[in-house]
Deep mutational scan, measured.
Amino acid sequence: SISSRVKSKRIQLGLNQAELAQKVGTTQQSIEQLENGKTKRPRFLPELASALGVSVDWLLN
C-alpha cells in the first residue's frame, strides 16, 4: 500500500514525518494521515515521490 511504502522509504532515508513534510511542502499531520492509511491519494503525490527519490508509479503499485 502507499502508506507502507511511504513509511518504509521515509525511515530508510532517516527522515521523520516533519522532515519529510517540509521537503514535500505539506504538514506533518498530512504525512501522518497518509502513513496511517487515512489518505489514499494525496494531492502532493508528485512532490512526495520526488522527496523520497521514487516514482509516482512505485508509490501507487
Results as ranks from 00 to 15, higher is better:
3 S>L: 04
4 S>D: 14
6 V>W: 00
7 K>E: 07
7 K>P: 02
8 S>I: 10
8 S>W: 15
9 K>D: 00
10 R>S: 03
10 R>Q: 01
10 R>C: 03
11 I>P: 00
11 I>Y: 08
12 Q>R: 09
13 L>H: 05
14 G>I: 02
14 G>F: 04
14 G>H: 07
15 L>Q: 03
15 L>E: 01
16 N>F: 04
16 N>M: 07
17 Q>A: 10
17 Q>V: 12
17 Q>M: 10
19 E>H: 05
19 E>A: 09
19 E>F: 04
20 L>N: 01
22 Q>E: 12
23 K>H: 07
24 V>E: 01
25 G>L: 04
25 G>A: 05
25 G>F: 05
25 G>T: 03
26 T>V: 15
26 T>I: 11
27 T>I: 06
28 Q>F: 09
28 Q>M: 12
28 Q>E: 12
29 Q>M: 12
29 Q>H: 13
30 S>I: 13
30 S>Y: 15
30 S>G: 10
31 I>T: 02
31 I>W: 01
31 I>D: 01
31 I>K: 12
31 I>H: 02
33 Q>F: 12
34 L>W: 03
34 L>F: 07
34 L>S: 02
35 E>P: 02
35 E>F: 02
36 N>K: 11
36 N>E: 11
36 N>C: 09
36 N>V: 10
37 G>E: 06
38 K>G: 11
38 K>C: 13
39 T>M: 15
39 T>F: 14
40 K>M: 14
40 K>A: 13
40 K>W: 15
40 K>I: 13
41 R>F: 15
42 P>R: 05
42 P>F: 15
44 F>H: 06
44 F>C: 07
45 L>V: 08
45 L>E: 02
45 L>T: 04
47 E>G: 08
47 E>W: 06
49 A>V: 04
49 A>G: 04
49 A>D: 00
50 S>P: 03
50 S>M: 14
52 L>F: 04
52 L>R: 00
53 G>S: 07
54 V>Y: 02
54 V>P: 00
54 V>E: 05
55 S>E: 09
56 V>D: 04
57 D>A: 13
57 D>F: 12
58 W>R: 02
58 W>V: 03
58 W>K: 02
58 W>Q: 03
59 L>T: 00
59 L>H: 00
60 L>C: 09
60 L>P: 00
60 L>F: 08
